[in-house]
Amino acid sequence: MDMTGEYRIAAPRDAVWAALNDVDVLEVCIPGCEEIHQDSPTTMTAKVVQKIGPVKARFDGAIELLNIEAPASYTIKGEGQGGVAGFAKGSADVTLEEDGDETVLRYEARAQVGGKLARLGSRLIDATAKKVATQFFNNFQQHLNDPDPPEDG
């Protein structure tokens, strides 16, 4: 399924871009992220816990940054193995547009699940994926607008 969103962030584009590439920022913004390690400038490994309906799974995942057009756009792609629960994959094309001192972030995201997650939780996948994507960008927006308070959700 495809999801889209648009956020206005009270920060200049370069700062937003830097944050989008900062593993510490990603760690606090990715919902359910337990740990994340930068392996190279464009690749990371992460452990993420997600609950999809009745299935709670810990995904061992790889995150990759592709199509990098600094500081205007990139694609962030994640792929996680959830053991017996199956796998989840997702990617988001993110663009940043300058608007005065602010930045408009737009994304188009896709998600796919496989294995038991698909068979048992298919009714819930769309809603869950939407929730995860929205949470990430909400967290990201909040973090940049006001990096100090603990993010919620």
Binding site: G114, G115, K116, A118, R119, L120, S122, R123
Partner: peptide
């Protein structure tokens, strides 16, 4: 099945 070949009716819930 979805387009990727994932079975999405895999239990008596679906």
């Amino acid at each position: 099945y979805d387009d990727d070949g994932q079975l999405i009716t895999g239990s008596y819930m679906d």
